[in-house]
């Protein structure tokens, strides 16, 4: 059987803890018999065999933001860092999906905000942190200051057999990837087989979630056309300050909560978007850490030669309850 006949190989599970998202990626069926052969084949084709690991997604810290609705500044972000450092299993990666800082036209002030973001971010005791910009980081200057601090705004890397792609849909000021980046994406993916596990992380949704709230990417369909040739693609994004799960064809899209304030359900509101009011009794309510546990067990019903679909199961624990739940349940 050709590798391209198999639809997937990777399972991603998740749980939300109140300040971000921790994902774990692992072969859904352990490498035994023909399945083991398949992982070997994929390993050769992808350049690296898939092995279990976990990673965290954080988003929308908006360092420098002040005023309503959130009077807490960087507290949720710092809380997220503490929680990640307290995880029973250290994640391999943290992916930060944009709006690291809040914009300002004063370059010196924005520089200070970038420095403050990095100072907090680097407290995370993880091997690697990867970033993409949000429009508040890069929309006013085409991403010049962002690149001074964080390097290129679109890039890719491989980790334990999974191909990660950072896409920038903010630096041209409009919600757009652009033809140049799209050409780069096609070239970047050209070396991978159809079955390659791919995680795309970006800021804005790559589909029309709510265009009149600017929750879209104008050429997102072009990106999806490129990605849809691959069987195992997960897209992680931020921008919308709330959980969301969506499918375009066989591609799954997941939004992370923010670390500053939340927006309401776009399907339930017809008026212009307004943040959810701050709740002083539950200061981290609706903000997000989403974590994912690693269990490495075969999924029920997985048959011997199949490699599992990419999927994500979110269990949400909000606010302080989330912290307590995390402490009570070290497997999370």
């Amino acid at each position: 059987m050709k590798p391209s006949d198999r639809r997937s190989f990777l399972k991603i599970t998740g749980a939300s803890l109140g300040i971000g998202v921790l994902y774990s990626a692992y072969p859904a069926a352990l490498a035994q018999g023909r399945v083991g052969d398949m992982f070997s084949i994929l390993g050769r084709q992808n350049g690296e065999k898939v092995t279990p690991f976990s990673f965290v997604q954080l988003s929308d810290a908006h360092v420098g933001f002040n005023g309503p609705p959130d009077p807490l500044g960087t507290k949720a972000f710092e809380h997220a860092v503490d929680m990640i450092n307290a995880l029973p299993r250290r994640p391999d990666l943290v992916l930060f999906t944009g709006d690291l800082t809040h914009d300002t036209e004063d370059k010196d002030v924005h520089t200070q905000r970038m420095r403050q973001f990095l100072e907090i971010s680097k407290r995370m005791n993880v091997p690697a942190i990867k970033y993409v910009p949000g429009e508040h980081d890069a929309g006013l200057d085409g991403g010049a200051l962002y690149r001074e601090f964080f390097g290129e705004s679109h890039y890719s890397f491989d980790h334990r057999g999974v191909h990660f792609i950072a896409l920038d849909n903010v630096s041209c000021a409009k919600p757009e990837i652009g033809s140049e980046q799209l050409a780069w994406l096609k070239k970047d993916l050209a070396r991978f087989p159809k079955t390659a596990p791919i995680v795309v992380f970006t800021h804005r949704p790559l589909f029309d979630l709510r265009p009149d709230w600017e929750w879209f990417t104008s050429d997102g369909d072009d990106v999806m056309n490129v990605l849809s040739a691959y069987d195992n693609v997960t897209v992680l994004y931020g921008h919308i300050h709330r959980d969301d799960e969506h499918e375009t064809g066989h591609i799954h899209h997941y939004a992370a909560r923010s670390l500053i304030f939340a927006f309401p359900d776009p399907t339930a509101v017809t008026a212009p978007k307004k943040p959810i009011p701050f709740d002083k009794d539950h200061p981290f309510k609706n903000l997000g850490i989403r974590t994912v546990n690693v269990n490495g067990k075969s999924a029920p019903g997985a048959h011997s030669v199949a490699i599992e679909d990419v999927e994500l199961t979110a269990r949400e624990f909000r606010g302080i309850n989330g912290v307590h739940q995390l402490l009570r349940n070290p497997d999370v």
Partner: peptide, 18 residues
């Protein structure tokens, strides 16, 4: 009734320019 937006990021309150 349709909401038109500024979709060229123009500053801190850009999200409310409709």
């Amino acid at each position: 009734t349709f909401m038109t937006i500024c979709d060229h990021f123009c500053g801190a309150n850009h999200g409310n320019m409709t």
